[in-house]
Amino acid sequence: MINENLYKYILGIADNSLILGQRLGSLTGHGPSLETDIACTNMSLDLFGQVRSYYQYAAKIAGDNRTEDDIAMLRKEREYVNVLLVEQPNTDFAYTMARQFLFDVYHLLFLQELQKSKDLTLSAIANKSIKEVSYHLRFSTDWIKRLGDGTAVSHQKMQDAIDGLWTYTDELFHQTEADKAMVAEGIGVDVTLLKEAYYEKVNAVLEEATLEIPESKWFQKGGKKGIHTEHLGYLLAELQYMQRAYPNMEW
């Protein structure tokens, strides 16, 4: 491989979108309204579109005839490097929106920096994705407010979701070795520098939504090293089923 760090770096970005897209895709037809169904399907579609661009680029870097689908669907559970946040289940609509919001805020900040990357392909993908992710963030922010400041029931459910997912937020700002190498080359984004802006933005929305900002300082990590929650195995079993059952075929 020409540049192993760059390859790993790309997976670190794209796996997040892959797993979150997969989560959103399973909601289609089951949402609280036709409009939210369309929106969640649309976000899933955007994320998978981004995933394809990243993996196609990664496949080119790998230079050994592997394809975007090999990268998406033929790795083992320890080889996925998405953050734990995005693999959390669609427990209810509050969880789905809280997960979305907590990721979208990060995702937009990240892409704004990635746009400045020396790597022109990554900067171009970021440039295209920013438009989509701004939509996602607007949608999820609106729902945090609607549910947080809606009825007593929705307020409680949204608070529970935020409390439940909060423990997965800190990992967004951890650096892998590949991250560090890419930052040094002016290709990667130094995620540690995004942390302050992230919590500022998140806290402002939570406050407006009349929600409590969780105080816990205990956080979970491991996704970036391939050490996942028990949820990921099931998600991959579905994602990979066809490629595993019918290997080496074209679809």
Binding site: G25, N42, L45, F48, M242
Partner: peptide, 19 residues
């Protein structure tokens, strides 16, 4: 079949269709 589509290309097309 969205979560089980055999390739990313097919998955994206299926999502767009259902949308």
């Amino acid at each position: 079949w969205i979560t089980r589509a055999p390739s990313l290309r097919r998955k994206v097309a299926l999502l767009a269709k259902v949308q």
